[in-house]
Design a protein around this nucleic acid. Sequence first.
DNA 1: GTCTACATTTTACAAATGTTAAAAAATAGA
DNA 2: TCTATTTTTTAACATTTGTAAAATGTAGAC
Lengths: 188, 188
Amino acid sequence: MQEKLKNIKLFSVLGDDALSLLANYFKVVNHKKGTILIHAEKVEPYFYILETGIARAYSDGENQQITFWFGQAGDVLLSYNSYINNKPGYENIELLEDSVLYQIHLHDLFELYNQHLALANWGRKIAERELIATENRLIDRSFKDAKERYRDFIVQSPNLIKRVALKHIASYLGVTQVTLSRIRSACK
Amino acid sequence: MQEKLKNIKLFSVLGDDALSLLANYFKVVNHKKGTILIHAEKVEPYFYILETGIARAYSDGENQQITFWFGQAGDVLLSYNSYINNKPGYENIELLEDSVLYQIHLHDLFELYNQHLALANWGRKIAERELIATENRLIDRSFKDAKERYRDFIVQSPNLIKRVALKHIASYLGVTQVTLSRIRSACK
DNA sequence: GTCTACATTTTACAAATGTTAAAAAATAGA
DNA sequence: TCTATTTTTTAACATTTGTAAAATGTAGAC
């Protein structure tokens, strides 16, 4: 397991001692495309890292779902409100492809955080990086119009464009599918 | 200093040992209204906690500034990209009132993170909480129209409505000042 | 192949928001 | 208090985006 974890970029900053500790608790799991790994309104007790596959996080509204995050190989999947506050989360996470994941129980992870300094700081950086990315997306919503956001998305996530339904990309970009379709036809 | 820090909610989860460690490095600083405490495009080496006052974080565009965050008493002010990547950040942070702050050098803070387990986990939670708040704001941009976002803002941040210029609130809500003005006059 | 379900595009119209400019109101300093 | 400056509002018009419904495209089951 330790060898497998070593291949994940997220773990590359960790020393062998931290890695071997983690390896004791991580477990490989496989899930089919369409699996809802994390459910909104529930306390979800697992922390996952995606080895292969694609995932999306979304929230349910009255008439629509809003996809606000995509996960790719090496990314962390979890219910942040479960993780931080031990309370039901706001996000569903769906696997958009058959996936292989590494799974650890939050209980174990927190135990490790409280035992191992390097791991606690590693966990800190995971959240900090995600925060910067999210804050930048929020800022882009104001600075850039939908066309620019779509163009940026194509450049920054060419692999997602190919593999993810446009309706999900539309809501990720903050527009309806009709608007995205208009943008796409104007680009031809 | 330790007694002062104890009054900040952010520190309430810390034990006396962690707090006294921190207290050795934190320093009280005063700044006038209008001070730009954190500059975009620069590596900013300090981590601040606001004791009294109000602050806003904004990014500069070609024709406009986008305010994407407000800080109040007890909140953390820093350049996340300086903090995490030791690289120039994207945010300016301006004090909107005369303020009292606690200041610590990032170098010292990281030293503490690498010495003290409880502090490393405390730093983790700071970022995690901010992440949840930011992610929720991003989701709200899609689910709610400007009128709803304004109403929510009034309810959730009544103190900011009173003390912050409407032009800043407009860009925080993701609309122009003209649109916010229309919303406000329709609410009367 | 044909059927079915689902995804995407297109169309026409409606609603929301942006742009620009100007007026009005509020505020800070002298 | 008065002036100068800034903030906020208002107006007219342009643009973007949303909504609903129909048309088209796509993939898999049979």
